[in-house]
Amino acid sequence: MHTRRRFLARALAGTLAGALALPASATAAPARETFPSRTLRLICSSPPGAPLDVISRRLAESLSRQLGVAVVVENKPGAAGVLAAAEVARATDGHTFLVTTNSPFITALAVMKSLPYDPQADFALISKIGASPTVLVANPKFGPGSLAELVALLKPGKANVTYGSWGPGTMPAQVMESLARKAGVALTEVPYRGSPPALQDVLANEVDMTFLSPQVALPLIEQGRIKPLAVVGGGRAALLPGVPTFAQAGYDDFVFGNPTWAGIAAPARMPPAALARMAQAIGVSVQDADMREFLVSIGFEAIGNTPQAFEEEYRAERAALLPLLEALGMMAR
């Protein structure tokens, strides 16, 4: 996948130089289709109303203004993002893109024995739009109020403490099983199909803990319906500055500092010039003051990096998480 990145920076300049060098008879030949020439489709791997969906729709509005074509968002949630990714991987129209988290590229490997695409070969990463920390929260009746207190409760080996994951191999399972392994304790995973049902059972005191975005957690914390324990990410959440990170509690492995990100990708076969145009437009969108303010309001840090930077970060994330999934026994067999 990274091989295609090398061409993006030179794609537009190379096209222009090549055109100037051709004889008149050659330049008279029919030109390739200009990008974009019709409606763009953003296939979102989350359901309507989720943070990723809201980001997709705000991005679509900005891209439409810049590129002069309609941009539609189509939600295709399910199977750890695999359904959305598979549709984009097989798209041949040159105008279909994937808006997703890392799930179809990494987490899906822990869910499915085989994928209908190659996560590395079938996609061209364009830009990481933003990233958000995630908050470990608990029912207010749950005793521990910090990671230290949680580990102290678990150390004797008699407490049965549960956490709601978003399905096998998802971020909550990666983080909590890593915590258990590092602290030498045991936790009980209760898998759900996503965050909302896990939250409902925490609110009902059926499950002790789960993970939420800062945007979702904040009003519930203010209402006293949940309490925060720690933040997964590179720093404290802007919406919850009083909540320490896992690293500040002594857990500094990669998985504890890896935020949830929203990014955009395309089929690997898309022409480099089209990829370069989209990367430029997304960069402008994310740097817009209104867009940055919106991302902060939902708990995200605006990023808008280059394809090359996105590719490098993805390779580092993959290199760290796949061995972890293997070590935790989470890889599908």
Rank of each mutant, 00 (worst) to 15 (best):
V286Y: 01
V286K: 01
Q287I: 04
Q287N: 14
Q287M: 06
D288G: 06
A289Y: 02
A289G: 10
A289F: 02
A289R: 10
D290I: 00
D290N: 12
M291D: 03
M291P: 00
R292S: 15
R292F: 03
R292A: 11
F294E: 10
F294A: 11
F294H: 03
F294P: 03
L295S: 05
L295Y: 02
L295I: 08
V296K: 14
V296G: 04
S297L: 11
S297V: 14
S297A: 07
I298V: 11
G299W: 00
G299Q: 02
F300I: 11
F300H: 03
F300M: 11
F300C: 06
E301D: 12
E301T: 12
E301G: 05
E301P: 05
A302M: 11
A302L: 14
A302E: 12
A302S: 14
A302P: 14
I303G: 03
I303W: 01
I303S: 07
G304K: 00
G304I: 03
N305V: 07
N305S: 06
T306C: 04
T306A: 04
P307Q: 08
P307T: 12
P307M: 06
P307D: 08
P307W: 01
Q308I: 04
A309F: 03
A309T: 14
F310G: 08
E311R: 01
E311C: 02
E311K: 01
E311I: 00
E311P: 00
E312N: 05
E312W: 00
E313P: 04
E313Q: 06
E313N: 08
E313G: 14
E313S: 08
E313L: 05
Y314F: 12
Y314G: 05
A316M: 09
A316Y: 03
E317V: 02
E317C: 02
R318I: 04
R318C: 05
R318N: 12
R318K: 10
R318A: 13
A319G: 09
A319M: 10
A320Q: 09
A320G: 11
L321A: 10
L321I: 13
L321N: 11
L322C: 10
P323N: 11
L324E: 07
L324D: 15
L324W: 09
L325E: 08
E326L: 07
E326R: 12
E326D: 14
A327N: 14
L328Y: 08
L328A: 09
L328K: 14
L328P: 05
L328C: 09
L328F: 02
L328H: 11
G329W: 04
G329I: 08
G329L: 06
